[in-house]
């Protein structure tokens, strides 16, 4: 059954779902998917592809590639609706541009606070506003349905946490983990949970002799980068939106609970009272990592800002760090050369 989750054709899956339910696009780990789920809508996180044609008429060359990719996807294959959240300046503007140019039945932006702690009251009210907006589209969402949906998400995330625990004991390919994560961000949660349970029973962490790495960044859009990294190194842990950042649970089964969950999720778009470096140092020790790979998207401001202090902290503590900056177009050869040299250096 392992094959079922890791080889699933997600495009095909979505094609089937499209016939029976409404599908909304979203773009950020801070999207309250639980509310959409409770409304009977399938929230799907969009990653797009590197083929960018139509989006160039809307976005300047100096705009980050993730924004271009997802807009291209919206322009080419629109879904029934889209939900943006206020993450960075680029995604905020993209929401408007999207509203002008993508034909769909529903479009909404959740204006998250930047300081989640101090803004928790505001955020809870904003989530309530969002819930009411969705209800206009879907019909009433009862408190009970919302609780059930949150539980379904929690159950799935507990299993994902288990996957990460297993990963600690032995090597599970980051390419496979990435597939599991992309699948959970695409599929109806309960269906993913069923497959994930089977997957966990069968998955077999192996010994792997390559240098142990921690991967930092935002989203892994193309798996080729992971494939290349794992030819030379072993990704033991990640600090990614398409990875560990998705794992925290909702404690209180309510809108406030959803808001509180966001408080536990680190993101450079939010106010960062404590630099990320020390947390990464803890993870390095916990996972006995040899080095860190920073995976950045060109023009991604929040991460580019934060990268400098992270690199400084790592350097001061004697941990090697490789920064890979992804451009619009894949550049596998360049990445291979750098990863290979980095891992050889780690092996000394």
């Amino acid at each position: 059954m392992k094959a079922a989750l890791s080889t699933l054709d997600l495009q095909n899956y979505l094609g089937q779902k499209k016939k029976i339910m409404k599908i909304f696009a979203h773009f950020c780990s801070f999207t309250p998917e639980e509310i959409l789920h409770a409304a009977g809508i399938l929230p799907v996180r969009i990653f797009g592809s590197h083929v960018i044609e139509k989006a160039s008429a809307h976005l300047q060359s100096y705009c980050c590639s993730y924004a271009k990719r997802v807009l291209e996807e919206g322009l080419t294959r629109p879904l029934d609706g889209s939900v943006f959240v206020h993450s960075c300046d680029t995604m905020q503007r993209l929401s408007d541009i999207w509203g002008y140019s993508v034909k769909e039945e529903f479009h909404e932006t959740l204006v998250l606070p930047v300081v989640i702690g101090a803004g928790i009251e505001y955020l809870t009210k904003e989530l309530d506003r969002f819930r009411k907006r969705v209800e206009v589209f879907s019909g009433e969402i009862s408190d009970n349905t919302l609780k059930e949906s949150i539980s379904i998400y929690n159950e799935n995330r507990k299993l994902l946490q288990k996957l990460y625990e297993r990963r600690k004991k032995g090597h599970i390919s980051a390419v496979v983990v990435d597939k599991v994560m992309k699948a959970t961000m695409t599929m109806l949660k309960q269906e993913h949970t069923a497959l994930l349970e089977e997957f966990l029973e069968e998955v077999d962490p192996r010994e792997y002799s390559h240098p142990r790495l921690i991967l930092l960044g935002s989203v892994t859009v193309d798996p080729y980068v992971l494939e290349i990294i794992e030819e030379y190194g072993q990704i033991s842990y990640d600090d990614l939106c398409t990875g560990s950042r998705y794992l925290p649970l909702v404690e209180e089964l309510s809108l406030r609970g959803i808001a509180q969950r966001y408080q536990s999720m680190w993101c450079p778009c939010r106010a960062v009272s404590v630099p990320r470096g020390p947390h990464i140092l803890d993870k390095i020790k916990e996972y006995e990592a040899d080095g860190v790979v920073l995976l950045l998207h060109k023009f991604c401001e929040p991460h580019l800002f934060e990268a400098v202090s992270i690199k400084n902290t790592l350097r001061e503590n004697g941990y090697p760090c490789l920064q890979l900056e992804l451009e619009d177009q894949p550049s596998p050869e360049q990445i291979r050369t750098r990863v290979q040299a980095f891992c050889e250096m780690l092996e000394g």
């Binding site: 932006t109 204006v111 606070p113 930047v114 960062v272 630099p275 202090s309």
Partner: peptide, 29 residues
């Protein structure tokens, strides 16, 4: 005016080791 202000001032606040009073103004849609 932008999210950059937040990052910029966080960096300056660490550099000078001085408090950063920040006012979060949610975007108006």
């Amino acid at each position: 005016i932008c999210g950059t202000i937040l990052k910029w001032y966080e960096i300056a606040s660490r550099h000078y080791d001085v408090p950063f009073l920040f006012v979060d103004t949610p975007f108006v849609h």
